[in-house]
């Protein structure tokens, strides 16, 4: 970096040396690293996306942790605990990636519990049955993987690298979900009904996880130009449905879309109309569990305040003691 000029992003004319370097890195499909210069919009867009993803992992722990104490076998209990714990771990790596862009964990946490930050609205749906542990793994984590595998190649280095690790674990999550449903579908009549009912509730919300249709997605174009995002919402959704249809057949569950059919011409599965009104309702905070999810996060945060304060005070006293010893 030779130039000391602060780039004025509103200037329409000549671009700075740094900006040219940034553009070249993007063009060459190289990684941008924390110390590289980056346009303010790129930084903001990444902080928004990464922190939303982190929040989704954290809120996403709740619908599943509901079943840890009631898991129907010890093996299932162990797997579910490992899975929810992985989600906390994902939240941690992602908050760290956002911190490399200058965001602080406190600010991000405050934004979440104040209801100002977004997280994936899928987690505002309830988990009334055990089969929902299957559907969340198979459909929700499955959709997340389709969204996230391309992010392993995201242009921002710390994000891409965090995603590699996350995707490995998500793949395990999806399998365990599929396996829960498979076991239920091979079980008693009541278990099969439990599974089908759950798939009926989660299928459409999972498709909505890819975001609004391409012609109605305000942030997508810039993110694709910057290679933060690599495929359009509709493209990924289509890929997901193509993957689900044969898996549903193996399970023996019906996907709740009467218009779903194979298109010989495109060799893809065409899906019926998605009810975007519901998506916008949930996004606007009028989903089944929005208030409850935030309340629980706020309670954990508030009730844990004295513990965090104690840890900070103790660390402070310890370092003061070390300095005192060194001075003697």
């Amino acid at each position: 970096m030779t130039s000391t000029i602060t780039p004025d992003t509103s200037a329409p004319v000549a671009i700075s040396v740094e900006e040219q370097q940034f553009n070249d890195l993007i063009e060459a499909d190289s990684r941008i690293e924390p110390r590289d210069w980056m346009p303010e919009g790129y930084r903001k867009s990444l902080v928004r996306q990464i922190s939303q993803h982190a929040h989704s992992e954290i809120i996403g722990m709740q619908p599943e942790s509901n079943w840890i104490t009631r898991a129907p076998s010890l093996k299932r209990k162990a797997i579910l605990m490992a899975k929810v714990q992985d989600e906390a771990g994902h939240g941690l790596y992602l908050y760290s990636a956002a911190q490399t862009l200058g965001a602080t964990r406190d600010d991000m946490t405050d934004a979440l519990i104040a209801g100002k930050a977004r997280y994936s609205s899928i987690f505002n749906y309830p988990t009334p049955s055990w089969a929902d542990m299957g559907s969340i793994g198979w459909l929700v984590d499955g959709a997340a993987i389709c969204n996230q595998v391309p992010l392993c190649r995201a242009s921002y280095g710390p994000y891409g690298r965090a995603m590699v690790r996350i995707c490995k674990e998500e793949s395990f999550h999806q399998r365990q979900g599929f396996e829960i449903l498979l076991e239920l579908m091979q079980g008693t009549e009541e278990q099969r009904q439990m599974a089908q009912d759950s798939v009926n509730r989660w299928y459409w919300p999972a498709l909505m996880m890819f975001g609004p249709p391409d012609d109605d997605s305000p942030n997508s174009a810039q993110s694709m130009a910057w290679k933060i995002k690599r495929h359009s919402n509709d493209e990924l959704r289509q890929r997901f449905v193509n993957m689900l249809v044969p898996q549903a057949a193996v399970l023996g569950v019906t996907l709740p879309d009467p218009d779903l059919h194979f298109n010989e011409e495109t060799q893809q599965w065409d899906l019926g109309e998605i009810d975007w009104t519901e998506f916008h309702e949930v996004l606007a905070g009028r989903g089944p569990n929005n208030a409850q999810r935030l309340q629980r996060r706020r309670d954990a945060h508030d009730e844990g305040a004295w513990v965090r304060e104690a840890a900070a005070a103790y660390a402070h006293k310890q370092s003061a003691r070390t300095e005192e010893m060194a001075a003697k």
Partner: peptide, 18 residues
């Protein structure tokens, strides 16, 4: 198991889970 998602900090969700 009942602590997971309710711990005072994320690191403790992970630790108590472990």
């Amino acid at each position: 198991g009942a602590w997971i998602s309710r711990a005072p900090e994320l690191e403790e969700d992970v630790a108590l889970g472990n």
